[in-house]
Design a protein around this nucleic acid. Structure first.
Lengths: 402, 402
DNA sequence: TATACTTATTAAAATCATTTTAATAATAAA
DNA sequence: TTTATTATTAAAATGATTTTAATAAGTATA
């Protein structure tokens, strides 16, 4: 649905301006006509017309009146809070769905673990069940504006198809977009999980709303998403931001992607667990009481001062710092946000990463690079998906003018 | 001069449509009204109006008539071939200027070596002299549409200021944009050299005109530029694409940027020369007849089968392959173009790089990644700068409607 | 050669979203 | 209460594009 460079008509101008107003409403509501005019560059009269239009279709509501600026009090407007979008987050071992309002607030959330090897239609049934649960509570289905799906890459966003995610065979070539569109008769968009999380962070999270951002998701794997000029930068095959699979140590260990010394092979949760297991096996004393090592256990051990765990995590943070600095040198983003279990389970990682990135970036302005930890945990993809579908709807407001 | 998201008016629509038509003319001329309408999505009538307007101000000329498509022969139009832009390419040890037409053809070129340590005003005098030489031959100065400057980064494109290029102290904080604008009363733009070369390649070079491209300049240093949706992707501080300063070997040698194991420290011309010098010093037999090693000599030696030179170059190609694959994983471009002395002096590098990149990229489509060698050599930045100013003018056609 | 059919150009009228202008309403400050 | 400032609303004007219609210049076929 990439609206190509179709320029021209009054119709297109109208679409664009509605889009601007919707985005401005999202960012700055509640807001007066006058301020919207200032934000968008449109005349107050145009804003007035557009707002009335959006009010008529139930997209905008009044929200009291604001402080007087020395004259008559302005009426304030905001996006109608009773409108929602549905988010679906597909993970390797679970599915989440949520009803989310235009301010990114999760109103209701459902979750189901996926055990064993499901077939594709079983995945479909699960997703639909969870969505149905969200819709049950809705008095009026009309208040749902659209559905977004976040899923592990690679995905084809144009056709709404999951391609060949490395760890979920069953959903290969699953046309989840078409499925949901047909069943619910709503606009549906699909996005790669890290891209979705990136946009969610930019819209609703810790981002300072700079125009460009690098989002890094450091968890079992390491992914990334790029925001440029407020939009997801997808690259050619929606694969931009795959920061986990770039080499930072040519002599490093083999990665699942086939390459060597990838950031993911060095710094990810899986890499740490693997390393810990190897170390455990080497230590004969422990081999008797051998137990499953998980990322959570490593965090816990580090917290209680276990030196080996601390070293593992610090090493990971070091690799992350170098890798993120690399990406920052290639992309030159205005800010960097880091999410995922590693930075939440081991908060000290942020300091290491910040130091390394600022030490290694070439184009540094007067201020140090803004590097923040995401405030989202498990809900990162859900909130992200909401941002993705809202962005789609606001960019194509005709979809909302049923 | 970043035209922010100012949406709205009929005026803006007009500007945009003129811009579309100019770009379409550049890409597909000579071209008929009907085809322009198809290209841009505008009606034939609008195209007709716009073309007449552009003809009136001397920007467009007729170019005979085309083949009949079954009816009346169409009149063909093209950008007026007697209009030029002036390109200025600033290098560490020389300055080039050129007069270039809208098709990217160099009409006249001037060059001057810079010996010793010049002052900033001496640099300015040199640049102006060279430009004056180009203008001398021009019967009418009005035919020059604008001036572009390509320079080593970092640069501030908004103010037209060179910041602090690592190897040319004298031109630090040089406001070259303001200088030229005032002296020649023409639109002036400044761009980082690799970004300029990237756009030049995209517009006039080997690029297949895909919407996204990664350009790598592998020479004494290693730089890069990114094209996204047909535009230069600059990042925050115009530093996007600094592929030379990302780490591919954490244990690698120290780089001039302060980091370790950067691609530039491993694969660049300077790195090779340095390595060759070290090897020479180690070999006692040669230490008597010690001579200056240059990149050109390494190329020559490799061509005549000298194993050490061949090894140096092949190693460099290997590093380049890994580094470019990294960038490709982060950016996911549609095609990659490589320019600079290394791929021209050692053509075999292309095969090594192609193999490594295709082996290491994660998101590969059905076809292998398009990786080509640039067809430009010394003129890469000049042609690139021309593309940059043309892009600027065509994006802001009001600049042409004096 | 004549006729029918296509495609291109040109002119006039219509369209449509925005802006401009003017009038009215509501509030703060003097 | 008056004056100045800001907000809202209505009507008219603007301006670029599109639509409609007419004309011009070709091709294809009989």
């Amino acid at each position: 649905m990439a609206s190509s460079s179709t320029a021209g008509s009054a119709e297109e101008m109208k679409r664009q301006n509605r889009s601007f107003v919707l985005q401005a409403l999202r960012k700055a509501s509640p807001v007066s006509n006058a301020e919207l005019a200032r934000h968008t560059g449109l005349s107050i009269m145009s804003i007035s017309t557009i707002i009335k239009e959006l009010q008529a279709i139930g997209l905008v509501e009044t929200s009291g009146s604001g402080e007087s600026q020395g004259g008559r009090k302005p009426l304030l407007y905001q996006l109608h809070q009773q409108n929602y979008v549905i988010s679906v987050a597909i993970h390797v071992d679970n599915i989440q769905t949520a009803k989310i309002n235009p301010q990114g607030k999760i109103v209701q959330v459902e979750k189901k673990s996926v055990c064993g090897q499901l077939q594709q239609n079983e995945w479909a049934a699960l997703v639909c069940d969870l969505i149905d649960q969200l819709l049950e509570n809705s008095a009026d289905k009309a208040e749902v504006m659209g559905i977004a799906v976040s899923a592990p890459g690679p995905v084809d966003v144009d056709t709404g198809t999951l391609l060949n995610p490395p760890n979920i065979k069953a959903i290969e070539q699953w046309e989840v977009g078409a499925l949901l569109e047909e069943r619910y008769r709503l606009p549906v968009v699909l996005e790669r999980d890290a891209n979705a999380a990136a946009l969610g962070e930019h819209w609703f999270g810790s981002s300072e709303k700079k125009s460009s951002m690098l989002y890094v998701f450091a968890d079992q794997g390491i992914g990334g998403g790029i925001i440029f000029q407020g939009k997801v930068y997808r690259g050619f095959l929606n694969g931009a931001g795959e920061i986990g699979h770039h080499t930072i140590d040519m002599d490093g260990p083999k990665c699942s992607c086939g390459s060597y010394g990838c950031l993911e092979a060095l710094a990810s949760g899986i890499a740490m667990t693997k390393k810990a297991e190897t170390l455990q096996a080497q230590s004969e004393a422990l081999s008797a009481e051998k137990q499953q090592i998980t990322l959570e256990k490593i965090f816990a051990a580090a917290e209680s001062g276990e030196p080996l765990a601390m070293q593992l995590l610090e090493e990971s943070a070091n690799y992350l710092g170098v890798g993120i600095a690399n990406a920052a040198n290639i992309l030159n983003p205005e800010e960097i946000i880091i999410g995922g279990a590693i930075v939440h389970g081991y908060p000290a990682a942020m300091e290491t990463i910040s130091y390394l990135v600022n030490d290694r970036i070439l184009y540094n302005g007067k201020e140090p690079m803004i590097i923040k930890r995401s405030q989202f945990k498990e809900e990162a993809q859900l909130v992200g998906a909401a941002a993705v579908i809202l962005d789609h709807l606001f960019s194509n407001p005709q979809l909302l003018m049923k």
